[in-house]
Nucleic acid binder design. Structure first.
Lengths: 146, 146
DNA sequence: TGTAAACTCTATACTTGGTATAGAGTCAAG
DNA sequence: CTTGACTCTATACCAAGTATAGAGTTTACA
């Protein structure tokens, strides 16, 4: 099958498929006489596997590692598990970060409930004063913000 | 003050400061006779403000908008508030996404508790079977995963 | 005064995970 | 036989910086 059909079947764009080939996630396929890429069913399966991993937010390098491990059925799956574990950890951290950010934003936002002029805007004042505090202070409390 | 001192005071790298100048977040400063950038205290304050906004995960374009709004005290602060509101929304979505991802990952991970061989690894089998389901099915349930 | 270290300058390339183009060649239908 | 759909390579672009080379400048110390 040619790349357009493969793209339609996987839901990936043609450029993305070529990009994965360049990144060695997907083996370079056979070519037709006119130099068109010609894919097997295996390529389709591989791409769906990759797509699934990307949906889990794995990086291309991580996916490459998993694919290499998977290539030999006698390998230990240890580093696949390690990769997933690290991922779970990373995402947990990111969620915590975003929640903290959310809290700060909501608190800042509450400083200006109505549309006012810039000079009266509590949101801008907050942004300013936090910045100033970070400039002059070295105590722990403001370090937390800065 | 020269760029090195400004970098030390703000905690930003020299390259980042020059990068912000190129992106028009920070006005191009005066130059010394030997073409070194020479910054005022205002530049320091501006950079701290920018840093604060970046810590809130605002994009450079958003910060530019806020800075432009802030530049005229008689302006309405409406779009500052809109920017923050949109941000809060974006982060909420992102947190929801990450939580869903986390759930999927944990569930997949539970399929292989011990280090086994690749061919026996439940994690790999799960990744495979989800990918295959997405390949052949068009019903709503598997769409949710794919 | 000499010189070596530390600083600064511009310009360019690299990162991640793609997306978007130009310009050329190929294939199928009418 | 030509038009439109498809494919090819190569290159540039996105965010938000980071890293480098190679050149010039300033500062500290002997």
């Amino acid at each position: 099958m040619k790349i357009g059909l493969l793209a339609a079947k996987t839901g990936l764009s043609i450029q993305t498929i070529r990009f994965y080939e360049r990144k060695s996630l997907l083996a370079a396929p056979e070519r037709t006489a006119s130099n068109y890429r010609s894919y097997s069913e295996d390529a389709l399966k591989q791409l769906l596997f990759i797509k699934q991993c990307r949906a889990l937010d794995m990086t291309i390098e991580e996916i490459k590692l998993v694919l290499e491990t998977r290539a030999n059925p006698e390998n230990s799956c240890e580093n696949v598990n390690t990769t997933i574990d690290k991922h779970v950890d990373d995402i947990e951290h990111r969620i915590a970060e975003l929640k903290a950010l959310q809290g700060t934003l909501v608190s800042i936002r509450s400083a200006c409930d109505h549309n006012k002029k810039v000079k009266e805007c509590g949101v801008l004042h907050q942004l300013d004063s936090i910045a100033e505090a970070c400039s002059s202070n070295t105590d722990n409390e403001s370090q937390l913000i800065c």
